[in-house]
Design a protein around this nucleic acid. Structure first.
Lengths: 201, 201
DNA sequence: GTGTAAAATTGCACTTAGTGTAATTCTATT
DNA sequence: AATAGAATTACACTAAGTGCAATTTTACAC
């Protein structure tokens, strides 16, 4: 089965689990390297498998598809943000809590690397589509997380709105980051986007 | 094949254009039929081409991919909604104008057919992903259309918000339609979703 | 009508993603 | 040491999608 890396899996540090994580990491590293070097379409699974020291068939034991090499990065991010949200104070306004969680998570990754991945994803229609689709999924995940943190039925619709605005602000920020070629740090763009939308609500 | 030899062919659309439209329509009809009958994956392009009376290679002259048979329906809808928006009064509040445009457009299509297509798309991950991705695209298209209709720079961010809320409400409505198996008409669900979100803004 | 340019259609060969299956090799556990 | 189950692999296969080049069909000019 493909990517788990879940924090809710009991800490197994046997040889099997360690090898598994190593192989998973090796595939993504090698894959990303080849994608950036010679392009996504031009890189075949045979090459990736060979470079990762596994058989082509084994690749499909770790990933459901070629796309998933790229998407796994994106999906991991979503889970991390939701985890970070749980660490935020319940006294904050929900929208602020989300914003701060996102900023905190983004700070943990090298900005130029994030931009390189983003640029790569933009260049592959099928991947870009799945990435944007994951925004829609993340919005619902975020909504569920918000509901748990502020479990007042009265606020439910409001939290739905917060989830929409948050994902929208994130989207706008990354779009701006791409548009202005990383001129300003992502944290600034996030602050700006959240503030602008909040002013309207 | 009776070609009209007369010089008095009144309309501008010639034989070529007519045939083209017919073939396009035949492919989607035949494709949808087969998808609904025997499933998406189980239907091959060879079958579709044969049933549509064309070669497999010609299929790719009309569609970029198998997915596009389904997506073409979805994408058409977006353009129609934006066209309908331009017919709405500029006196209305933007959010109401969008809502009414969407309702007007939906009313033009048979509800059960729309649900059948929606159900089919949900069952195919790759298609579902592209559909959700198109929501993101439509949000921007909608924003641009709104900006043209209410071209006040002061309101720009507000209209961005309207676009987000609108697409969100549409998504929620179609989700509800699917969840409750078409119990209530789509217009009701749209009214409800828009009202609920508007109450929070 | 005739000729001609462009569009539409097709066949063929080819690459590559992805799957089913069954055999084999490892790792964990008793 | 033995056994169960996970991981790895080879092999064969299907089907989507592309490139190319030839052929037919439509449009339009003369």
């Amino acid at each position: 089965m493909p990517a788990d890396t879940g924090p809710n899996t009991p800490p197994k540090d046997g040889l099997r689990e360690r090898k598994r994580r190593e192989t998973l990491q090796r595939i993504t590293d090698v894959g990303m390297g080849l994608f950036l070097q010679k392009g996504y379409e031009a890189t075949t699974l045979d090459e990736i498998a060979a470079a990762a020291g596994i058989s082509r068939r084994t690749f499909f034991y770790y990933f459901k598809s070629k796309d998933d090499i790229l998407l796994s990065l994106q999906n991991g991010m979503g889970e991390v943000i939701i985890a970070a949200l749980k660490a935020e104070s319940a006294d904050k306004r929900p929208l602020d809590a989300v914003r701060d969680a996102v900023i905190a998570v983004c700070a943990r990754f090298p900005a130029d690397e994030m931009r390189a991945i983003d640029r790569l994803m933009r260049s592959i229609p099928a991947v870009q589509a799945r990435k944007q689709a994951s925004y829609v999924q993340h919005e619902d995940d975020l909504f569920q997380a918000l509901r748990q943190r502020w479990p007042d039925p009265q606020r439910e619709t409001g939290l739905r709105l917060v989830a929409m605005l948050s994902m929208g602000a994130i989207r706008l920020s990354f779009e701006a980051l791409n548009r202005e070629n990383g001129a300003r740090p992502i944290a600034d763009l996030l602050h700006e986007a959240f503030a602008a939308l909040k002013a309207e609500v």
